[in-house]
Design a protein around this nucleic acid. Sequence first.
DNA 1: TTGGAATGTCAACAAGGCTGACTTAAAATG
DNA 2: CATTTTAAGTCAGCCTTGTTGACATTCCAA
Lengths: 169, 169
Amino acid sequence: MAEGHGSASGGENLLFLTDEQLRKGIEAMFFAYRGFTADPDRILEDHAYGRAHHRALHFINRTHGTTVNNLLALLGVTKQSLNRVLRTLIEDGLVESRVGRTDRRERNLYLTPKGEALERALSEAQRERMRAAYRAAGPQAVAGFRQVLEAMMDDDIRRQYLGLRDRRP
Amino acid sequence: MAEGHGSASGGENLLFLTDEQLRKGIEAMFFAYRGFTADPDRILEDHAYGRAHHRALHFINRTHGTTVNNLLALLGVTKQSLNRVLRTLIEDGLVESRVGRTDRRERNLYLTPKGEALERALSEAQRERMRAAYRAAGPQAVAGFRQVLEAMMDDDIRRQYLGLRDRRP
DNA sequence: TTGGAATGTCAACAAGGCTGACTTAAAATG
DNA sequence: CATTTTAAGTCAGCCTTGTTGACATTCCAA
């Protein structure tokens, strides 16, 4: 069923499409993701938070004043699931929820200084590993890395990903 | 704290090490991993299995006759957690557990034909997405993708990853 | 023969997903 | 203005998958 896809039957070099190559790629994703989350996870433990809190902090920092609905779409979870996380972050004073100015049904989410501090610590740990990996692999490899990851996303997610802009305070 | 790392202060082009570039890489990992697991997840739903079952099937298929301890190290979970998954797979006739020949304390794990069928279906769905992504990005990008992912792994995991050999039946 | 390793199992717990039902407030629409 | 729709929040309950801790069994090896 799966055989023959990556055979070198064509004129071009398609060895990188071998099932074995694809399997190695799959395993690389699995193992690399473990490393990717390992450092922030250690920090989160000390605060009795989990990965879900990290993700919320990351995207609230990324898109200042975003609404809950917006965040739901980015994270791909239900509002009940997000709400549980968001509530603790608000109670603990890491996130501020302000009533929307134009549409008062909406809530705009912001990090407090305390929230920014934790986000920075988590992000810095994660970026440090990325930085080391990027440096080890070099700029050309990094470009390829990003290309493959983008091609791997679902279409609607890719649009959201590409739309994320760096905040300028 | 994190600022200035990727500044273009050196003579070389280090723009790919900007904090903003690193953040995009982090988000790319997050979103791509969602796509990466989406297709197998849909198949697993129909069988009332979860991702944990997929991972077990994958690595048992990959390393025929592996022991439980070996599998634990690969998966990075506790034996209690793996055991729960393994038990259902054995009960359902997807995995066979044979007493070790040289060391009778060990159990060697094998996929049954039924187990191989499910593994193939899951793997094929996942490989199809990888194949599309690889094809879209091209061989050079794929090489870079693998380089960065390898550099992102923990050292001991990278050794295990590199040690995984394709099975030849 | 005894210590320790490999495995398996039980119980209890937590995080973080999910669905479904329901409320409140406010906007949008007829 | 009345109605419908939307955004958000909440409660209850369920599932998967991870965790500890305790304990039994088997059996290799010193």
